[in-house]
Write a protein that binds this DNA or RNA. Structure first.
Lengths: 207, 207
DNA sequence: CGTACTTTTGAATCGCATCAAATCTGGTGG
DNA sequence: CCACCAGATTTGATGCGATTCAAAAGTACG
């Protein structure tokens, strides 16, 4: 895949200024591979081309908490102005990433105001996404979280899951058992239409 | 309070470029006042000088969900590049805000790269704060969320609450009853030291 | 074809939400 | 200055829903 097709597949790359491209490095990643660990010095900024990369922490019981899940686009954007990582960065699937050294990345942001403007928009989008996730996690029932997810992540009341139900459960702050049961219940009640990875909310208003 | 003392109290204001200052407007806010509503067009960017401003949404039961709580600094940063508000913005206490028109605010960001750089850092900080909140809300027990809050928001295992326990409970994604009970239990178990607004975690490692 | 992981269901338990009601508190106005 | 009021704090009782532990069945992948 050449640079042009990379940009086609990820428009945000179009804003990467010419000088920074010289430092771009392409790299394959393996499923389960840990790319960076908490407290590692931040040396590069990654953008996911294919596969899936996750930002994770662990709670005191050792359970994984997924803070970000990226299948396309930048990972750990907020690490740009800190010295060390605050989370582990792991590959969940095999795939490819593009890597820029942070030093040059920062320099390009200062030099190129268009790039900086894109980056800012990107950060604001991440802020909105995270607020939505906080809102969702503040809901007390599994069903509410499922519908909230469909409304905020789906299109026209339909989401195509790009992950397993088990990891979806973690993203929703539920155990996988609770999610399976809630999905079954909602399906039985006619509130959800479920076909494998496609989950559709049946709105009562449309009846 | 003049401009100099404003800047002293909020260093981020030091980065506001000269031309933008001309558009700054000072304004008093009353407790309970709704400053902006969901779907209102975004016309200004607020920075809180005193009092407290909150970004809130409501769930289907009408319960308030607090997405951001600001006693000093910018509110609703992510509204800069959207047309309308995605949350209500309300004053929780009487106080004062400084308001900049978004149009000029955006223009200044483009013109002044130092200002843009500060703004970016600010956004990244908000991203980290939100990730910490998501992590906290992913914890399943009240006690875990309390300790997580103390660790991430406190200093040396101590937090000084700048809000009521009731709103703290909402921030932790708990009912206020659950929070009161959890605090009592942890105090009884000798895991917390509580003096009014000061909550201290007793680390077992320090014994 | 075996192995690791996800999906699914079951049963028991526990913690939180919920509803209720009694103080306590800070602030307001008479 | 005191009575009053709204909201916060606190405690109690109850029920539900999610967690937890367990295990079976399904599925993808090498």
């Amino acid at each position: 895949m050449d640079r042009k097709s990379l940009i086609d597949s990820q428009p945000i790359l179009a804003s990467v200024p010419e000088p920074l491209w010289k430092f771009a490095e392409r790299r394959k990643i393996e499923a389960g591979e840990t790319l960076f660990r908490i407290d590692d010095p931040v040396q590069c900024m990654l953008i996911v081309i294919s596969g899936e990369v996750r930002l994770i922490r662990r709670d005191r019981n050792g359970r994984e908490i997924i803070l970000q899940r990226v299948r396309k686009g930048f990972v750990a954007e907020a690490s740009l102005d800190v010295k060390t990582y605050l989370c582990d960065v792991v590959a969940a699937e095999q795939g490819e990433v593009l890597s820029f050294p942070v030093r040059e990345f920062r320099a390009s942001l200062c030099d190129d105001s268009k790039f900086q403007s894109y980056w800012m928009k990107h950060l604001e989008q991440e802020v909105r996404r995270l607020r939505a996730q906080c809102e969702r996690l503040s809901l007390h029932s599994a069903a509410d979280r499922i519908f909230h997810y469909i409304e905020s992540e789906g299109v026209d009341g339909v989401v195509m899951l790009d992950q397993t139900r088990k990891t979806w459960a973690a993203e929703l702050g539920l155990t996988h058992e609770a999610l399976y049961r809630a999905l079954n219940k909602l399906k039985a009640e006619g509130l959800l239409d479920i076909n494998d990875k496609q989950i559709k909310a049946i709105s009562l208003r449309n009846v």
